[in-house]
Write a protein that binds this DNA or RNA. Sequence first.
RNA 1: GGUCCUGUGGCCGAGUGGCUAGGCAGAGCUCUGCAAAAGCUCGUACAGCGGUUCGAAUCCGCUCGGGACCUCCA
Length: 497
Amino acid sequence: MSDLKVYNSYSRQKEVFTPITPGHVGMYVCGPTVSGESHLGHARPYITFDVVYRYLQYLGYKVRYVRNITDAGHFEEEGREAEDKISKKAVLEKLEPMELVQKYTNLFHWAMEQFNTVPPSIEPTATGHIVEQIEMIKQIIEAGFAYEVNGSVYFDVKKYAATHDYGKLSGRVIDDLLETTRELEGQEEKKDRADFALWKSAAPEHIMRWQSPWGVGFPGWHIECSAMATKYLGAQFDIHGGGMDLLFPHHESEIAQSTICNHAAPVRYWIHNNMITINGRKMGKSYNNVIKLTELFSGNHPILEKAFHPMTIRFFILQTHYRSTLDFSNEALVAAEKGLKRLWDAYEKLQAINYESREEGPGTELEEKLKKLVAEFPEFMNDDFSTAKVLANMFEIVPVINSVKDKIIPVGALSAETFKLLQSAFKTWLEDIFGLKGVTEADNSKLQGVMQLLIDIRKEAKGKKDFATSDKIRNQLAALGITLKDEKGGEMSWNID
RNA sequence: GGUCCUGUGGCCGAGUGGCUAGGCAGAGCUCUGCAAAAGCUCGUACAGCGGUUCGAAUCCGCUCGGGACCUCCA
């Protein structure tokens, strides 16, 4: 099998993945800011990196996956509103800050469960690591790369850039940065406009506040990730993930902070997912075009024509390469929904077939084709996680499965070995690696019994050519949202829409 | 304004210079008491204009369009 290659944002090219410690992978992914509800855009990184996590484990790595919860809040705009985003909202909603944070954290966890994502190994909170952040800031000051002004601490970007490559990750030129940075209030505290806050002094009304060597305040925007990543993954770790919109300034600043503290570049492979767009524009609060996950699952949103199942979303996301933008539309999601159903129906049929045939024999052309398609699954994944191509191959196999089921492909065309290969490959890839699940839940044994009874009655009616009765059963069930299908050979199957 | 990405058939989307991606929708056929599924067949698309090449959706240049970041942002 080929080596895993990942596109490293830092080098801007695909590189062979080699972990620092053989057999182990440390992965940090920027988690949600729990000051509000997650929307469709947020689903992308967590599903993308869930598959990365699952795939690395499939490859045999022991992975420590750290994904933070940002519950201390960042600023609306640095300096302008000397106010914590979370505390601000808390006032509006008349909630305690931690109450608010808890509410949205719970909601986030609920959504992640709907998406069938595996929980990270560690999910540290920013508020739980104030001490670590203060320690790190102290180190940066001691190293001479930060300075204190009026109880706030700023990172000295210019000094750092003199000896380090600030701007490399995001393709920024430091001089341009100085010219293009916007005029903001509170800038006068900084020595240089490109500098960023490590610690901000808190105004008296500020609710979230902690004691520090520089007075009462709260941590700056980027330090939490540096502190928590260092604590749980070490000075250098393998993978850091997040959305492309975090490249600058968040990840760029993270590199600077960590590099000063740990005397080494913190991350080997930077992986960034692209945005989900709607009408070609990034989904985001500032664009006023967000669809919250709760709205998506319920269909309760003006631009939604219907509700969409979390698995449809998951599949929708996996059908695109993670570094491409993905444009949302009702039509696109309906297409994904139908595609997933077709794939999943075939998968369930595949698992249900008890295939008995020659144990071995000359490989037919069909067999060779199937083996090739399956063998390509890991090849595609190894090429920077091309989930879309793996799914395309699966869809090529779907007609074969259906044909075996309907006996259009005769028994004996496939060896039992090939057939079992399909069964195990589909299970591994669909369930274990892609984390997909069936959309319809019909796991009610009583309902199954009732359905079997109706099917028996319908079979009898059909046998007597009593089509009035047989059609009545099928039509009434259809009205209830249950589709009954006649199959070749007189069997019947059903599913809930 | 700066930096970067991008423009593929009705829609969504893969695409490593030469070989049918795939999904959805649509058309025809087969199967079927009817229906639904399912199977088979069908679209010869790559923004435009040049260039490199035996050969370009794929490389280069220009033009036009869209987007991201430069501010919290997945």
